[in-house]
Design a protein around this nucleic acid. Structure first.
Lengths: 203, 203
DNA sequence: GAGTATACCCGACATATGTCTGATTTAATA
DNA sequence: TATTAAATCAGACATATGTCGGGTATACTC
């Protein structure tokens, strides 16, 4: 294999590795890692990486280097085992299970929900799967949503037919749900996850 | 003892929030956030939280507070669009798409792979899904693996029958693969993901 | 009341850390 | 050769930061 790139590249690799590990390095840690005898050498490489857009930094604070873009800035959303009626914010309180997501929800909040039942199995959503949900009060036709049906959160595909909102399961064994009154939508499913090993599954 | 809404709890909430955002706070940042007039007040709360096991800290370094356990320490694994023959490590080089995972792979490395084809559709793995893989050279009977078949990476369920290794698709339209020679296993699938929106999908 | 524990405060020290000014080396170029 | 730009080094400064010793007030226990 060809020899690894120059010093600039090694600085970038090290900083990225540290950021990914959760602790961005200080300037002097970069200096020591790369074997520089002057702080300034590390500083200039970092400045150059920031100038070229490969790194970002926040003000004059320690360990202030980040990876640009939405990537690299992982956030966590609370995992709800099940959502009964009532306020969603109450269900989110006092949770200590979180799952990492690598995109943000803009102004809205996000949460995760464990799927019960096999009503969406034809859409590749199996019992026990975890859906990442963007909290919002309405949704478009065809989107997979989390809605409150009989005081319990359920995952279904939303269809608008003849001006009426319907919740379609993706399993021929289940009937289409036509809400009598107004439908309470908790959010829109943006991601589906399945953990195949018990020891890495969130509690 | 610790009453709900107490100062101790507010300190914990703030520190956790900051850690999840990627930048653990300094002692003085905690002080300012909570309105303490003395650094020591924040320090003592932090010490207490560490003593009770709700926080962890690394040495005398700045921003050294962590959330205990594997949870909270998100890492990133490289996303491979496809894996052809040859060394996996080469395919991992020069990737700038990463996905966040909230568990670690121990001594092993992890990577992500975009699934092609619908051969695992009955296992709820659809075309375009992303599998998180723990890199390892072998696997147990019944595990979903990534293996090299005809110089291309493929996702199948591994079965051992009569002492012979077989790769089983989960789709009746596809035949069982019985490797002629030794089977090259790239890793074991530990997680399946599906992004339902194009704008949050990793490149 | 004496003792004790908790929570908060004050002031301080040694080191860590971001940043700056200027010099030296190195390599490519006119 | 002289010039120029990049990379590295040297030394320093102001502030940030972890840590420490000791103080005050309140509540509770004996």
């Amino acid at each position: 294999m060809a020899r690894k790139g120059g010093t600039r590249e090694r600085v970038y690799e090290y900083v990225r590795k540290r950021i990914l590990e959760g602790t961005p390095p200080t300037v002097r840690e970069v200096q020591r890692e790369l074997g520089f005898r002057a702080v300034q050498s590390a500083q200039e490489h970092l400045d150059a990486l920031v100038a070229s857009g490969r790194l970002e930094k926040v003000g004059r604070v320690s360990r202030g280097y980040r990876l640009p873009g939405s990537n690299g800035t992982a956030s966590f959303v609370p995992l709800l085992g099940s959502v009964q009626a009532g306020e969603l914010s109450e269900a989110i309180e006092n949770l200590d299970a979180y799952v990492a997501v690598d995109h943000d929800f803009g102004d809205r909040r996000g949460f995760a929900l464990r799927v019960r039942g096999d009503s969406m199995i034809d859409a590749g959503i199996l019992p026990g799967d975890i859906v990442i949900v963007c909290e919002q009060p309405d949704a478009e036709n065809g989107e997979v949503v989390v809605a409150l049906v009989d005081d319990e959160a359920t995952v279904k595909r939303l269809r608008v037919r003849n001006g009426r909102v319907e919740l379609h399961p993706e399993n021929r064994s289940y009937p289409v749900i036509v809400p009598a009154g107004p439908l309470r939508i908790l959010g829109r499913v943006v991601e589906v996850r399945r953990y195949l090993e018990s020891d890495i599954r969130p509690t």
